[in-house]
Write a protein that binds this DNA or RNA. Structure first.
Length: 985
RNA sequence: GCGGGGGUGCCCGAGCCUGGCCAAAGGGGUCGGGCUGAGGACCCGAUGGCGUAGGCCUGCGUGGGUUCAAAUCCCACCCCCCGCACCA
């Protein structure tokens, strides 16, 4: 499922250079690792994460797409699965019965191909295996695909366990016929789909190796050919005077109206062959390709390219006669080797024509032509593009890229792409295109092909846009596979079910819903069977195997019963017991358990237990994955659920995230920033690695995350010092009498819990950790400085909450801290803190904000006057608070500020002039309104904190007074939320 | 082209939905101070320009607009990234 890109591994240098190294002190890391081992052992002994149906608790079923096990997990896969674990742990602390299972994906070609390479002794693949720690004497075993699966499955499991994931391992399994239990399940699924008419048959183009006679997937090719697939092209016939056909292959059939000549490679040898009754002259390559696309091709002989030069060829559809000219850019083994020249719209043709003009005399001499005829060939413009009136796109890009020769392939390829993009999407067919004039090029293209084809002058073929070689060294071409099985995603009824399911799902982040909708609407039929790969054979046509994206759509249901089916030693179920009838009963509630039991040989109680297990856990509450799975797997997941299951079991939610960069760059061996999870665990331990992964950006977003090794280093310190802090401070004696600053800290403590909980619900885990740890720590530091000594109860409360808030992220450290506090049981199942709304006091938070702002102001003033000894703080007069609150109220009612300010004049007993002055100040800094509290509270806050403020600013004395009886020469400046300050040397 | 996401201070990156608390969170880097056996750990401060009183000027892709007030709302434009399918 999750592709690990062994391909990428393969391209890496054999001795990777490390750009990324851990710097955290070993002893601190070792301390964390010892704890991790201890708690993992205890969790496992307590079977803490083994989840069984429990009607007394709400359930939460969460999954991660099973990874493709052809290598070990790296920081990328570890990132996404960590988000699953964090959510699972959070939900567990919220009192949910959480099921987090994990399986492995073995379906597909890469493992088979890699095993074959080992068998062949390919040094590259052997080196890759060694680089991930496979012993020399073990290499031999990797000739067998099954061993890959077994080996890396073990490796993944070990890594994930050491990572501290809260998985119920009883439900582990891997796919393909290597696990016949799973295969039985997939067979059932596909029988169902066929029953419902969602399976069809058709033909399908594939990249084909003629030597090995097989489909060539990405894993079967050298890296430079990865990702290139069949494209549609058109062959247009040019007829020579003797009746033979020059078939020109083109990707731009709409440009036939601009043809000026035909290009051939004079130095190449072409094949003369009978194709569908006509005599064609074409490349050997296309002979093979056409044969594999069901054309009858009978080779008659050979023709030298130069023999064709100088002949006239006729395009029947337009009646145009054109000359055959030589061109060096024409490759005889690409396409038909015959090129229709459209210099008005194709950079290659344009440049080649210019060269032909220059060399007209030479060409004429060499091929016996008339130089004037060559020079008289001029580009024909037949597409209009807005903004390209004076110069065509072809002229523009050839000039811009300074192309000087037809052999400058890179520049010409780029120019071709640019011209195509402009003309195809923005171009309009010009007046000289007959019945197509005025049509958009994007629409005209297909119409032109239809028109030509209906007259027998063109045909559609599939070909490769570039040469692609198989790993065996053979050149590949496109073959049309007949009898290909398809999933009929294009069926409107199926699409509308999928859309309905989507509309009821939670999608994080929400905007991704649109991507899903677009994908569902645009999804076409899917060729779901392959040959020569690992998988489950199609039950009714066993030579085909169900391909990887198609055998992984509803397997989350299988987790619910894997506990039973995958443990024959305990429950005695054999693969042959798992008849379709059994699945019908377990998943769909069909049939009578007694009869199903009798026929399948599975005891009734077991069948019922499986049914209960399924109905309890299903549907999946949340599936978390990388963004790459939106347009394929996650969409298929929705489709198949709607096809197989009743509505109540359709998926409830999906959360997606971006890729992981390491140190700001895409992970790659050549950059030296490719990190396997096991390496990170070795360097930083589990909790610090988890911490850094979350801090990389574990929110629900399509943006890429960035794992910074320095963050992992600092997490090592953070976790160690938090543990020390807990040990030194939890339950110690401290201040007993309650002060205003305690109200403040209690308030922010509760509002922090509230915000963090909201972020957790939205799967925005980085934001949750930033708020729940970093910001809370800042708040505590400030509290400790302002309070001098913290309040005893609050200190305890803070330590508890802080530990609970980091528990989903750094569970081992949290357990250790929890134990150090003397708490009973595991923190993993402790109650997530609940915000006490009554303790959240906005006016206290506001007044403390005023204090903080005043300290900053005072610092600035002191700096400007070059230091001082004494500070007088004057809290504004009572009437100013009244006036400000009138203004604030008016603003909140929606009045414009100017109008709201006039409210202040309602205050009685104060001179209008004074009020006007205050209004002036308010207009200048309306922000004070947002931290408006009361005169009494401000006075109290400043008085209580005057000592702290003094030491904060390094002053000998801080005097706090009220404006009414104040003596400060600047007391008139005092505003609510912004007391007047007066500093003395 | 269609669909989606973006362009913020030296760098990374929040804010934008719900306009004023935003010269703009938080990191990193840099500078200064503290702690120390001159610690890569920790703590405090500075880090657009100017300023001996909390201020002023310039500023969040570009250009307009709405508003007492815009990084935030509206319009137009420019640029970048991703997807548009058979690689899992």
């Amino acid at each position: 499922m999750l592709s690990l890109r062994v391909v990428a591994l393969a391209s890496a240098p054999l001795v990777p250079r490390r750009a990324v190294e851990p710097r955290a002190p070993r002893e601190l890391v070792e301390r964390l690792k010892r704890m991790e081992e201890k708690w993992q052992k205890r969790w496992s002994e307590a079977r803490l994460f083994e989840a069984d149906p429990d009607g007394s608790r709400p359930k939460f079923f969460i999954t991660f797409p099973y990874p493709y096990v052809n290598s070990y997990p790296h920081l990328g896969s570890a990132f996404t699965i960590l988000r699953v674990d964090v959510m699972a742990r959070y939900k567990r602390m919220q009192g949910y019965n959480v099921l987090f299972p994990q399986g492995w994906h073995a379906t597909g070609g890469p493992i088979v191909s890699s095993a074959l390479r080992v068998a062949e002794g390919d040094p590259k693949i052997i080196e890759i295996l060694k680089s991930v720690g496979v012993r020399e004497d073990e290499i031999e075993k990797f000739k067998d695909p099954a061993y890959w699966v077994e080996f890396f499955t073990r490796g993944w499991k070990r890594d994930l366990q050491r990572y501290g994931l809260s998985i119920d391992w009883r439900r582990e399994f891997y796919t393909t016929k290597l696990n016949p239990y799973y295969s039985r399940f997939i067979e059932w699924q596909y029988l169902k789909l066929r029953e419902k008419g969602l399976v069809g048959k058709g033909s399908h183009p594939v990249v084909w190796c003629p030597k090995e006679r097989k489909v060539v997937g990405d894993h079967d090719r050298p890296d430079e050919y990865v990702g290139i697939g069949p494209v549609e092209a058109v062959i247009i016939k040019f007829r020579l005077e003797d009746g033979r056909v020059l078939p020109a292959l083109t990707f731009r059939p709409e440009t036939v109206f601009g043809v000026t000549n035909v290009w051939v490679n004079p130095n190449a040898t072409y094949i003369e062959a009978r194709v569908n009754g006509e005599v064609w002259i074409l490349s050997q390559y296309m002979v093979d390709e056409l044969r594999d696309q069901d054309y009858r091709v009978e080779v008659l002989g050979r023709v030298e390219g130069r023999e064709l030069v100088g002949r006239w060829a006729r395009l029947e559809a337009t009646g145009k006669q054109v000359l055959v000219l030589p061109a060096t850019f024409v490759k005889a083994d690409l396409g038909t080797g015959i090129v229709m020249s459209v210099p008005g719209h194709a950079p290659y043709d344009y440049v080649a024509l210019r060269e032909a003009w220059e060399r007209a005399e030479d060409l004429a001499r060499e091929y016996g032509l008339d130089p004037e005829t060559i020079k008289s060939i001029k580009p024909i413009v037949m597409i209009k593009v807005p903004g390209f009136e004076s110069k065509t796109p072809t002229e523009y890009y050839v000039e811009k890229l300074r192309v000087s020769s037809q052999d400058e392939r890179e520049k010409l390829d780029e120019a071709t792409r640019e011209v195509y993009a402009k003309e195809f999407y923005q171009g309009i067919m010009a007046g000289n295109t007959g019945r197509f004039a005025g049509m958009k090029v994007s629409e005209a293209k297909d119409r032109v092909v239809e028109w030509l084809a209906s007259r027998g002058e063109a045909l559609k073929v599939y070909t490769l846009p570039r040469e692609v070689y198989c790993r065996c060294g053979a050149r590949t071409h496109v073959k049309l596979v007949r009898d290909q099985w398809f999933l009929l995603y294009s069926k409107p009824e199926w699409k509308s079910l999928a859309l309905k399911a989507l509309s009821k799902m939670k999608v994080y982040p929400e905007h991704v819903r649109k991507d899903f909708r677009n994908t569902i609407e645009a999804l076409r039929d899917w060729a779901f069977t392959h040959k020569g790969e690992l998988g489950t054979p199609l039950p009714w046509d066993k030579e085909w195997v169900i391909e990887s994206l198609s055998d992984s759509t509803i397997y989350m249901a299988y987790y619910t019963i894997a506990k039973y089916t995958q443990h024959p030693e305990k429950y005695g179920i054999k693969p042959e017991n798992l008849t379709p009838e059994v699945f019908d009963y377990v998943f769909l509630g069909k049939g009578n358990p007694d009869e199903v039991s009798k026929r399948s040989g599975i005891p009734r109680e077991l069948l019922e237990a499986m049914r209960r297990e399924f109905t309890y856990w299903y549907p999946v509450d949340l599936r978390i994955s990388g963004k790459d799975l939106i347009p394929n797997h996650l969409t298929f997941y929705i489709f198949h659920h709607t096809a197989i299951f009743p509505e109540e079991y359709w998926p409830r939610g999906v959360s997606v995230n971006g890729w992981v960069l390491v140190a700001g760059k895409k992970m790659s061996k050549s950059l030296g920033n490719f990190i396997l999870l096991r390496e990170a665990l070795e360097w930083w331990g589990a909790d610090a690695t988890r911490w850094a992964e979350v801090m990389a950006g574990a929110d629900a977003t399509l943006d890429d995350a960035n794992f910074e090794p320095s963050v992992a280093d600092s997490a090592v310190y953070i976790l160690n010092s938090w543990l020390d802090f807990v040990r030194e401070n939890y339950g110690r004696r401290a201040r007993r009498e309650w002060r205003l600053i305690d109200d403040w800290f209690e308030s922010v403590l509760n509002s922090t819990v509230k915000r963090v909980t909201e972020h957790m619900e939205e799967t925005n885990f980085k934001t949750a950790l930033v708020e729940g740890y970093y910001k809370l720590q800042e708040l505590y530091k400030w509290y400790a400085r302002m309070a001098g000594e913290p309040h005893e109860d609050l200190l305890r409360k803070f330590i508890e909450i802080q530990t609970l808030l980091i528990a989903p992220f750094a569970p081992h450290t949290a357990e250790e801290a929890w134990e150090a506090m003397g708490k009973e049981g595991f923190i993993s199942t402790a109650q997530w803190p609940k915000a006490d709304e009554s303790k959240i006091k906005p006016e206290v938070e506001a007044v403390m904000e005023t204090v903080r702002a005043s300290i900053e102001d005072a610092r600035e003033v002191l700096r400007l006057i070059g230091g001082g000894k004494r500070l007088v703080i004057t809290v504004a007069a009572g009437w100013k608070f009244e006036a400000a609150s009138l203004v604030k109220k008016a603003v909140e009612e929606g009045k414009p500020l100017g109008e709201a300010l006039r409210e202040a004049f309602k205050i009685e007993g104060v001179e209008k002039r004074e009020i006007a002055g205050m209004i002036q100040q308010l207009r200048k800094s309306p922000e004070v309104l947002t931290r408006l509290s009361s005169r009494e509270l401000e006075l109290r806050a400043f008085k209580e904190l005057s000592q702290a403020i003094a030491s904060e600013l390094g002053l000998e004395e801080v005097v706090v007074e009220a404006e009414e009886e104040g003596k400060s020469p600047r007391k008139a400046n005092a505003m609510p939320g912004k007391p007047a300050l007066y500093a003395e040397k």
